[in-house]
Simulated scan of single mutants.
Amino acid sequence: MSLLTNALGMGRNMAEARMTETVTIGRFEPDTDPVTLDPIRVLVEERYSGKARVKYPSAAVSDRSEPSQVVAEQDVMLSIPTGSPAAFEGDEVRVDASTVDPSLVGRTYGIKGRPQAGQTTSHRYPLKELS
């Protein structure tokens, strides 16, 4: 094994140790709760379910204009273990549990693009917050 391979392995282990959320990634469709009749999102195609890390790298919020409204956006990143099945732009991410921040549970995000690739310690996807 090379020094690089050993360093990447150690980095990946450390990255996974910081993955404190459990997420479900896939394609969701709108539906109605049969009891409350509230609108809900139902998973129809799962791509990944397991440990992850949701991170807001900065508290900075940027404003952008949409037709007839101003939208505030923050950068959000999702890290999942290297070697996990691929997620695609437009897939949704639902946070099912968190051992460090209960306010993340129930939030949903959309994947905005492809993850970083190459000599990385995890797959890091850019996200947009949906709810």
Rank of each mutant, 00 (worst) to 15 (best):
A15F: 01
S62F: 02
D101G: 03
A97W: 00
G83L: 05
E21Q: 13
S2C: 12
P39E: 10
S68Q: 02
E45T: 02
A17D: 08
K55D: 12
G113S: 11
S98H: 06
V100M: 03
R107H: 09
T5D: 07
L130G: 05
P81H: 14
P39M: 05
P115I: 10
E16K: 14
S84W: 09
F28L: 08
R12M: 09
A59M: 01
Q74C: 06
S2I: 11
Q119K: 11
S62L: 09
E66P: 00
G106W: 04
Q74I: 12
G110S: 14
D101T: 04
F88A: 08
A87D: 02
E45D: 12
P126A: 14
V70M: 09
R12G: 06
E129Y: 03
V44Y: 06
G9S: 15
L130C: 03
P126G: 09
G50N: 06
Y48A: 02
L4Q: 13
V71Y: 01
V44E: 05
H123Y: 15
T36I: 07
S58C: 00
E16F: 04
E46C: 09
N6Y: 13
V95L: 01
Q69K: 09
V93S: 04
T22C: 04
D38G: 04
V61L: 05
E29R: 11
V71D: 00
P81V: 13
D96T: 07
E16V: 14
R53W: 00
L78G: 02
M14A: 15
E16N: 13
D63G: 08
A15R: 06
S65M: 11
L4Y: 10
S103E: 11
Q116S: 14
R41Y: 15
E66N: 06
D38A: 15
V54L: 13
R47Q: 05
V76R: 03
D31T: 08
V105G: 02
E46K: 15
F88V: 04
V23T: 07
D33Y: 08
T120Y: 08
T121R: 09
V54M: 05
E89A: 15
M1Q: 12
M10D: 15
Q74W: 03
P57M: 00
D101V: 04
A72V: 03
I111S: 06
D101S: 11
V44G: 06
K51C: 05
G9R: 12
S103Q: 10
V71W: 01
D33G: 11
P85S: 06
S2H: 14
R53F: 00
S68L: 03
A86Q: 14
I80A: 06
N13Q: 13
P126E: 11
L78R: 03
M19E: 01
